[in-house]
Every structure is written in C-alpha cells, then in structure tokens.
Design a protein around this nucleic acid. Sequence first.
DNA 1: GCCATCATGTAATTAGTTACATGATTAG
DNA 2: CTAATCATGTAACTAATTACATGATGGC
Lengths: 168, 168
Amino acid sequence: MSLPHALLGLLASQPGTGYELRQRFEASLGNAWHASHSQIYPELGRLEDRGLVEVIAHGSRRSRTWAVTADGRAELRRWLTETEPNRDVRNEPLLRGFLLFLLEPEERTAVLRRELAAAEREGAALAATAAELDGDGGASRFRPIVDLGLRSNAVLQEWLREQVGEAG
Amino acid sequence: MSLPHALLGLLASQPGTGYELRQRFEASLGNAWHASHSQIYPELGRLEDRGLVEVIAHGSRRSRTWAVTADGRAELRRWLTETEPNRDVRNEPLLRGFLLFLLEPEERTAVLRRELAAAEREGAALAATAAELDGDGGASRFRPIVDLGLRSNAVLQEWLREQVGEAG
DNA sequence: GCCATCATGTAATTAGTTACATGATTAG
DNA sequence: CTAATCATGTAACTAATTACATGATGGC
C-alpha cells in the first residue's frame, strides 16, 4: 500500500490541506498514483495517530493544513531506501494496447487516434509543468522526474503515430 | 475493473487454464496488469455465467482449458472501441522517483542503481520476448506492443544512468 | 441572496491481497 | 517413493471506489 507514503511525500514537498493533496495527485503525481478524498481524509487521521503528520494551521472553511513531522520524514527515507518497490503496475491504456490485434484495421486506427490525442494532451500538460518549473528560478527538485515523463511521452506519441500510419 | 477484459484478451490470444493465465500475466502483461489465482478462478466462473468464456477441454490434474466465446469477443471489441480507458495508472516505482529529492546524494544513488538493475532485467526479458516472436516466423500480433515496451525501457535506462552519473 | 467552489467526512460496495487448504502428475 | 510443480479452490482481510451527506466562504 503506497497511499500513506504518497501522502507523506506530497506533504514533504509542500504542506497542504486534504483537498489540496487531492488536486496534487492529479497535477503532479497523475502518472504514478492517485486517490480520492474519501481515502485521503481517513489516511491523514491514521498518519496523525502514528505521529508522521501534524496540523500546522487552521484556515477558513474549517480547513486544516497538514505537514510531515521529523518522524514522517524518517519513515519516508526508510521506505525509499530499505523496502523493495512493488513493481505490479496497473495501466489500463497499456493493457488495451496488447489487445489491439483483435480489432479490424479501421477500428484499431480510431482507437489509436484517441490514444494519440490523450498522449498529446498529457505531453502538453507535462511541457507546461516543465516550463513553470524552469521559470521559477530553475533547478526544481521535480525537474528530473518531469523530464522522464516528457521523454516517455515522446516515445509513446512516436509509437502511436507509427501505428496509426501503418494501420490507416 | 479491467480484470474480466484482461482475461478475455488473454484467452482471445490463446486458450488456456487458469494456472496458465496467471503465468501469462507475468510473462506478457506484466507492465500493464496482473492478478493472482485467487482472483482469476472466481472471475472465470463469472465470465462463464455471462456466456463470455467456455471450457473447451479437460486435461490432467483436473485442469480445464478455457476459451473465449463469440459473445466474449464481441464484448472485448465493444470495450476496446466504445469505452474510455481508465487512465488512473498505479506505478509505485515511478511514485518513488518523485520522492528521490528527499534523499541524500549517496542514498539516492544507491536507490537509482537498484532501479537501473531492475530496468536492465526488464529490458533483457523484453528483448528475449522480441527475439522469440521474431524467430517464430515473424510478424506476431504482439510485436508492436513489445516494441513500445523496449523503447520505453531504453528511455528509462538512459534516464537512470544520467541520474546515477550526476548524483555519484 | 445565491451559486460555484472549497472543504471535510462516513457508509456501502467492489476489487485485490494474503493466508489457508487440498489433490494430481511427472521427473528423478 | 518423494519432491517439485501443476492445478484449483475458499476465507479473511485490506484497499479503493462510489454514493451519500453536510457545511463554509467568496464572488457576483
């Protein structure tokens, strides 16, 4: 279960409310993990019980801003360095890629075009993130991993264009 | 839930027993989806109830060979062409990549080296699969998607080597 | 004043993992 | 004959999604 460490990681990067964490899953961690608010709020409570996060501010609309504690940072480092990653990836669009051979050429082309459009949107979002990071005085700690995302996305777009070209 | 369609897809590619399906999740679909036998056997029963798969042979050790029915193929095509993919990917190694900035340079290098070793193993497995497909009289229906895997793996390995180099 | 969005929570259900359990066959 | 692997199944538990529910605040 990666959710507690995903939350610790988001808070280690920047404190925030549960609501904001939800949004950051989409904005920055979208290709790696995600969670809905109904998972986030109870998990923050459990992390608080374990002393890994704490409320550092109360804001309007009874919101609470959470931050990771020293113990939380230690737990994150332990997890990163001493535990093996679970490599059981779940990626439904890729699963669909394995099954494209089942379709007639015209159907396959239509599906591939839809995926290409999605990859282009994703690529544009990544480029915007990269530009933002570069604009903020450069050298963000997320710049390298965003770059990996950009390169992977470029490979995917290239593959999709080849497949569309060959099929249609 | 992609499991029923993953099973239909595996059986559409080649009939097999529940046990074999389990192995094929690792061998061919490993980067996209996976399931344990305790999920596969009950799901095959449900697919049978819906008329999407059927037993086509009884073998030794009371094994049953399953195949997808005409209705099953129709359901697969409908799913591929008419439904939007769920793009909520779960990828723990990538999540960890986002959090590497939390580590000291030496720790980060050690983690990156471990990931590089994993990526090299994965790349070798993909290359072996590709060679096998090419050897079998060529033009396998899985060759294109295996090629996407190879290219993505190459990008990942390159990125990891850069990160290792820069950090240590 | 009222609508959109911020903000948080719980309940019910479904999906997925881990643990428990058993028997058949084949290779050495 | 016996150990490894093939082969299937259920039970208990944990994780995740969907649905239900409520209230606060800021902009118009």
